[in-house]
Amino acid sequence: MLTTSKRAWGLVMLLMVVALLVGACAGVNAPAAAPAENGAPAAAAFKVGLVHPSPVTDAWSGQAYAAIERMRDELGAEIANVEVGDPAGYEKAFSDFASQGYTLVIGHGFQYQDAAAKVSPDFPDTYFTTVGGDKTTANFAPIDLVPGYMQALYAMGVMAGEVSQTKQAAGFTLENPATKLPLEGFRQGFESIPGNTFSMIVLRDGNDVGAGKEAALQAMAGGADILIANANLAGDGVLQAVAEQGDDTVFAIGTIGDQTSKAPQNILASAPLNIPQALFAVAQAAKDGSFQGNSVRQFTVNDAGVYPFVYNPALAGIVTPEMQALVDETIAKLKAGEITVEMPQ
């Protein structure tokens, strides 16, 4: 506005540019030291880095953290993890790990696949994987747990379909194939029993416990007596609503982990996703050098131990041995290909 103030701004700019240049020069010198660190220890240490979207205290990222802890304990891996929820930061997180000589970098979610695909060619000595995704490179191979989880929840859907009195179930999810598609599997299982209907509610925010709870209450008021949530922490709200509703005619199926403790009187069974088991094989391959790039490792119920079921002993009167046998039978048919779970349109 005034010439003096313009001059002042000019000076500010000059100072900032100088500061940036000084910083840049200091920075440009730094990588000169890095290659030595890069080349030498690659053979020495087995290092695993994890990039995850949410705090490791929640169910989804907690599973990945448990996975790298197992790699530390059983494979002697040096582990580190970083939470990156901001898409502009994905690539940097991957290249930071890779440039520090990490052997394996795991991105915990399909959303990381673009970044892994872009970064991996620059770091041929590092292996990359993401949990979900379909892109690959020579040293990047994602794992896809969705097909098997759709099958596992199909079996849960068959069981829930037998239990339901109102013949209505509701699922709660977020817009993400890793959360949504497994519930489509549940739908097909539940609706395989004639007359059953399943409705799906998509929540906007995986942190909004309150919205999850309200959604569950609306579904129950609409007649659903089986609820299943795969919606991160908003799913806790669903289970809380089921736990608080007072009468024992509404039940829930747990996902991702064993969720029995969140509604001890109402969770029929949980279908945990054993991510540590699935990622362990990847880590072993990375350690002994047999890692296969250019491929997507798809998991199905044929992969032992990845899709276990945990039945709630408090509800043994409903989830009877016959009921559990029905689940086992369904899984056997899925394994044999007698039943197939369809991808929804």
Partner: peptide, 10 residues
Amino acid sequence: IFGNARNIGE
């Protein structure tokens, strides 16, 4: 922030 050129670019 200033550790190396890549961080500055970031």
